[in-house]
Design a protein around this nucleic acid. Structure first.
Lengths: 183, 183
DNA sequence: CATATCATGTAAGAGGTTACATGATTAC
DNA sequence: GTAATCATGTAACCTCTTACATGATATG
């Protein structure tokens, strides 16, 4: 099959394969860790894209190892497809934030329910922010030990996550004042 | 057909229909304006969900008016389905930010290209932030004139947008320092 | 009367989610 | 030897996007 235009999920898998062969399982883990905070993907997708890319000649499957692990390697065609993809102007971000729908339509909620929901989500965001704050110094230290563009780029995305979650927390803090009629 | 679990897009349309009948065209406009900043949807989807909801008895279609405008009204079954939907715990937000993929894989980009891309996106975000800042005082004024929960909820989502875009701009400003090796 | 915009809709395919099925290996 | 977890994959379905087709009405 002529390699149709690569989608961002598949392209990211190719991106990770530049550093060496990985199995589907490994790719799921790597992708979750490296781009999972701003690019949703599922295990199911990864296996499907790998199968499709193998059929298109963008990757090759190696011999099964222990536990049926099948290492995928990027091919020259894969590298070419990736290079073409990354050159493209990235589209704008897509956000789908169900909690904000709940806020918009909160008038249809029994009193107190919105506060409950907000409290739960606030907790989840606080945890994510705390996690980013825990990880940052490690990354900064690693970068000082062995400076590299790859680490700098990873730190750059972490910095986005930090600012994003901080903004969300800030929003949660202003909400009570906004939602209650002034005295 | 038994009305299967409502999806958030369809539910939002029902939400807007609580305030009175609207045509598909109007719903597209209302949705873009009221939730478009944190819930992507297309015209195509709106017409499809309306057709499906009409078949499920959640809305009724009125007589075509001028230009074939067909007003949709919410039914009691629709109100019940909506009430059930809004009671549910909203899922976590989904973000898909292609620009961050570009940053992660920027090592595969020719020198200078990343800066170009970043500059373009930064401009777009600056424009959105400026727009939020333009709208806010209007909303605040409207709220002071005629206080209402609906307006407060709308302001709450705008405040999220403001904080989000501010965080993004802040990130853009720290990027140059992060990406270049220190002197 | 030509052009822009309003307004509806379909078709086709890509992308994504959820749930399940299957078997290997490791750890207790 | 049984439970956990590693590892692959399929099936079914839903959702989303893109592009196109069609015709009405308003505006100059």
């Amino acid at each position: 099959m002529p390699p149709r235009q690569l989608n961002a999920t598949a392209a990211s898998l190719l991106g990770f394969l530049h550093d060496g062969p990985l199995t589907g399982w490994d790719l799921v883990a790597v992708a979750q860790q490296r781009i999972g905070n701003f690019w949703t993907l599922t295990q199911s997708q990864v296996y499907r894209e790998l199968t499709a890319m193998a059929a298109a000649g963008l990757v090759t499957v190696g011999e099964p190892e222990r536990r049926d692990r099948k290492p995928y390697s990027i091919t020259d065609a894969g590298r070419a497809a990736f290079a073409e993809w990354i050159e493209r102007e990235p589209g704008r971000e897509q956000i789908r934030f169900p909690l904000l729908l709940t806020v918009v339509f909160a008038g249809h909620l029994p009193p107190g329910r919105l506060d409950e929901i907000l409290a739960a989500h606030r907790g989840a965001h606080a945890a994510r922010l705390a996690d980013y704050r825990r990880v940052r110094p490690e990354l900064v230290a690693a970068l000082e030990r062995t400076p590299s563009d790859a680490l700098r780029h990873e730190l750059a995305t972490l910095e986005f996550g930090l600012r994003y979650e901080s903004a969300v927390m800030d929003w949660f803090e202003t909400l009570p004042g906004l939602l209650r009629p002034k005295a």
